[in-house]
Amino acid sequence: MSNPARRTNPGYGRWTPFWFLAPAVVALFLIGIYPTLFALVTSLRQYNLTRSRDGFPFVGLANYQAVLSDPTFWDTLARTARFFLVVMPVEIALGLCVALLLHRPGLNFLRALARVTLVIPLATTYAVVGLLGRLVFNRDFGVANSFINLFGFPALDWLGNSAGAFAAICVMDVWQWTPFCALIFLSGLSMVPVEIEEAAKLETTSHWALLTHVQLPYLLPGFTAMLILRSADVLKLFDVVFTMTRGGPGAATELISIYIQRVGFRVFDLGTASAQALLLLVITILLARLYIRFFYREIE
């Protein structure tokens, strides 16, 4: 970049980037543009499939108004935020611990074994995770209660009460996504040049100092990526919760996407559901921008 000669003659034509980019851009655009525009237009209409006899008149921003003044929308959004704030720190902390364990030299067989098994939760079908959750957290024949009995606690009716069900979906999410965080952290750790790490180890015996001074810069980009992907995923989280609790009992596990699905495909009020989904998209984009601004170096 500092080389002036390269600036004048980068070695490629003006249109070269275009040709490399065109296929992906065109494909995404062609597949995505119609549905996205359709959703945008739908969000401006009264669009209820079960009232198709009334037609689908334009109503301006009425759907957005309705969504913003709908207490359930805000409740479910707040619940989703709470879910994120519970699972994300746990996943980051556990993920980092796991990554450090895997990064530490020695015990090669165990390390390889543990690393390979990390892939299993990631690959497990979300819908199956939910079904599994229903089996594991069953009050009578669930294995979760066997474990807590082992530690001397009485059996819990996990899915039958609000706090238990919320905890149960958190546990399943942490199980499934901690490995993802761990792998990203691990690759960050392995980017630290060996000489620097060795030199630092000679100077300090404190793991904490090593982590914050030497390794942290290499972990931050992955950390941002994690935040962005997990935020987007939690806002879209549907399969696991739907198969596990359907958003119940009461509204204890009704996350925002469960609610939108309910409005969109149970009540069939697609005008409102589209408005909700687009608002959610805006929130996700804002969050992602925020993370990038604070943690990520912009792509040059």
């Binding site: 992906a24 879209k236 549907f238 996407s257 939108i260 559901a273 959610l280 998209l281 996700t284 992602a288």
Partner: peptide
């Protein structure tokens, strides 16, 4: 490559993952 709007383009790619399928399923 260096070109104008690169980081926006990159972000546009990424943001395709953000859209909730519920909004797009019907269209």
């Amino acid at each position: 490559y260096d070109f104008r709007g690169k980081s926006d383009l990159w972000f546009w790619f990424i943001s395709n993952r953000f859209i909730s399928p519920i909004a797009l399923a019907l269209p």
